[in-house]
Design a protein around this nucleic acid. Structure first.
Lengths: 200, 200, 200, 200
DNA sequence: TATGAATGAGGATTCATTCAT
DNA sequence: AATGAATGAATCCTCATTCAT
């Protein structure tokens, strides 16, 4: 009779440990042994669930990407004032920091890994392309709703995404920065910076 | 004296080679041998000018930091409309991408390295602290000039810095993104998002 | 009793699988997992019947040795013209290739393993000592029968064994070689090379 | 000024050490560290001259092959009685055991490695194909000279090669076997087994 | 100063073997 | 008896750094 294990749960457990260690030390400085220790298993066991150290980062990316996709989906399926929906998306993304601080801290490793381009399975560029796409869609909707000021286009979507990610970046590099307090300023700058100026 | 000049030039030459290779392959994937080859010197010669592979990244950081400090200085010493000076700063930082693309592409490695906190000589957090500080100063000036809308504070400075760095990030990760075209949108979103709404 | 039979059959089944995989990939490149898969059992089950991976090779050797002993026995118990009995032995050994190709292909692993000398339970040297011994006995008989030419001794027995094994070797290394066609040439060279030259 | 080293000599020195260790322990049981120790260098230095542990075996094969080619060349360029030239070749090959005992003892590893077929750079099969080819040529010459008995063909060439290699094999597996004493018996059996029977 | 051969610590990965179920 | 998850020792190879010339 084989030992009973929930293979998926085990995998998740190890991945969770890996993410914690990556968040703490950075991917480059993380040894497979560190991960095994954090997970409370032997080094070899890590390889029962992941092909390589690299694969753990990729899996972390996939987890991040999945969360990201959910947020994007929500933004897409929402209704109502388009600029308000952008504001919600901003708050959701920033909210992820509290929900998943480790996964967020890994972002910098994903950027570094994803920069290699097609050579890497970490296609972080695609994630941001998607982000820009939703924002652009919402901006188009805002335009239709007449709430947008003139001359807003693709570039502005990149700026909104940039504002969010750039704030995450500052927090990653300096955890003392009160990232959760930034959601409102981001919304204010971005949404108000795009909203049509009311005539009196 | 001529010796010293030569020596400094040689150091710069090697550092330049290192930066190019870092930009191409990323710090983690860069071997000291790659740098030596790019510089056209022997591996051992690299160590005549730098203590370690790590030191090359630190030196690159210092170069980046110096450039950054110059921009900050310019923003501080400037005069005139405060919001316009913010706009200039934004354009300057984005302009650095064209001027020094390699140094910019290295940013991601600096973020990764700098994240280690006090353990690392790459204090990238300080750079962004400084950036936020100037922006905050300029915002205060704008407030005094009456061009700022109400309720703007520290957080908004972080957003402006975030918008810039977040756009750089997107470009690093996806060089197809037309980063230079983003200067204007960034300015529009940030400056207009902060400017006081004119009454007619 | 039925248990015992089952057990022995199971052992043989696993050994057979091991031999097939060894023949295919070579001992060094064979994982216990490969053997388990070939046998259709779990990896752990292999260890219920064999102490170690090494033990499987040893068991294969024992099977080979048993077959070899049978042939030797037949050669010893035979009667009639001594040179003819040598010819028969040659044909029998070469015939084993068709009968047990996998076991034959493993020979090279047995040679490698057996070379370690006393440290190894694979005493392939003893097998060849035995082969040489029978051949020598038969040569002595031939001498008594007056069919042998003068000056034939121990060394010639080694040559006969060598001719056989050397042909197997060439086939192992190059399966395109039509090994079964070689039985007759081996017999011709060896037997005629030893037979007394008839006076007319 | 670079350290002066004769790179080729260094390579040969390390290869020599590797061959000695392979001969002693077998390829499978040889660690790169063992080779380094035998050569009196650090482990890493081995990799300055060889790509991998495997490459050392390949290089050993190439050395063996080169020697083999020389012998073949000599056999081809010789003149005189064809059967006598076969006898010389036999003696030369057997003589290699005294000249290069370690290289000879490695043969079994080359056989094991070479058995993998096209996947391996150790094309030992080609070596034996060449050996058979020369022997076949010499047999054809003998036939033309009228010294050969009827019905001799390709297969007989394989037998001659087999007799030689099979004797080496017995020595490898059992160094107590007086291999040098076997040259004469091999010649007697093979040459006399192929020579035309004189009528009185 | 410059070189590049030499070093050896370090770390990812493999896989024979064990053992809880 | 059978399983296959878990283990961790073993080993290949890399590469930052040193140093003799």
């Amino acid at each position: 009779m084989p030992r009973k294990v929930d293979s998926a749960a085990r995998r998740d457990m190890i991945l969770g440990a890996a993410v914690r260690v990556f968040a703490r030390q950075g991917f480059a400085a993380t040894r497979v042994d560190d991960i095994a220790k954090e997970a409370g298993v032997a080094k070899g066991s890590v390889y029962l669930y992941f092909d390589s150290r690299e694969a753990l980062l990729t899996a972390a990316f996939e987890a991040y990407e999945a969360g990201s996709r959910t947020l994007i989906q929500q933004a897409r399926t929402g209704t109502g004032d388009a600029l308000e929906r952008i504001a919600s998306l901003v708050r959701s993304v920033v909210g992820m920091v509290s929900a998943e601080p480790e996964l967020t801290r890994i972002l910098v490793d994903l950027w570094a890994e994803g920069r290699r381009g097609d050579a890497s399975p970490v296609d972080i560029a695609a994630v941001y392309r998607d982000h820009r796409a939703v924002i652009a869609e919402l901006l188009a909707a805002a335009e239709a709703q007449g709430t947008l000021r003139a001359g807003v286009g693709e570039g502005h979507a990149a700026v909104v995404v940039g504002a969010i990610e750039g704030c995450l970046l500052q927090w990653i590099v300096d955890p003392a920065l009160p990232i959760t307090d930034l959601a409102t300023p981001i919304v204010e700058v971005c949404v108000e910076g795009l909203r049509r100026r009311e005539r009196v």
